[in-house]
């Protein structure tokens, strides 16, 4: 089991007040953690820190003690808008792109791509342009492309925001498929919309605290879904 750990994080944008000061969080492989926070609570920023896309002003992000900067390929991030992470002309090429850029030999790459096309139900659309797919299909392609790297951790930035009901079920089914292989952190502004979780966290005023199911349910009942 591996651990992705953020300890004593401090972060601020420019001269603005610190978004986090002394924030701690841990995600372990094999567990699914849902992180709920209101708008502008810093969910996206935290995910970017955990993925090594931003540098904290203080504190560190590590996987089993090794700084994240030395193992960025071990953390994948799925953005709210899948269009932000797709550039290849076809689904198949999109899944292969990361491996190709790393110089993976075709004979190694092709079986990986074939396996992912099958696992995520993408064989029928392998030659299609990602642009022409529905939101749920795009998220599945993005997920498959990330899994090509064999990450230890997956960070989901409100990935179901733009999905209709069938597409959301589609994405949740894909998440179930890989649940045991990786550690997942799934952010949402709406406590009613989330995958099955092992732990529930609340990000509030720059700090994280654990919530019980009943606490989360109580919060969910105060609001309406977005």
């Amino acid at each position: 089991m591996a651990e992705l750990t953020a300890s004593d994080l401090r972060f601020a944008f420019g001269q603005r007040p610190a978004l986090f000061d002394g924030l701690n969080v841990t995600v372990r492989t094999g567990e699914t953690v849902v992180l709920w926070g209101e708008n502008a609570s810093g969910k996206t920023t935290l995910l970017r820190l955990l993925a090594g896309m931003l540098e904290p002003l203080r504190g560190a992000v590590r996987i089993d003690g090794t700084p994240i900067a030395e193992q960025r390929g071990r953390v994948g991030i799925l953005f709210q808008n899948p269009d932000h992470q797709m550039i290849a002309p076809t689904v198949e090429e999109e899944i292969a792109l990361g491996l190709e850029l790393r110089g993976t030999p075709p004979e190694v790459m092709q079986p990986v791509v074939e396996n992912l096309l099958g696992r995520f139900g993408l064989e029928q659309m392998r030659s299609r342009s990602p642009e022409s797919l529905s939101g749920g299909q795009k998220q599945r392609v993005a997920l498959a492309a990330i899994m090509a790297f064999r990450p230890l951790f997956l960070l989901f930035d409100e990935p179901d925001s733009y999905l209709d009901a069938p597409s959301r079920r589609d994405l949740l089914a894909a998440v179930e498929e890989i649940r045991s292989e990786v550690g997942m952190l799934w952010t949402t502004p709406n406590p009613r919309r989330r995958p099955r979780a092992d732990r529930l966290l609340l990000l509030e005023r720059g700090q994280i605290r654990e919530l019980s199911e009943s606490e989360l349910t109580a919060h969910a009942q105060t609001g309406v879904s977005a």
Partner: peptide, 13 residues
């Protein structure tokens, strides 16, 4: 086009 996506309940209201 989808103006309430990603809004928490307070901003949704």
């Amino acid at each position: 086009d989808e103006p309430t996506i990603g809004l928490d309940w307070r901003f949704h209201q």
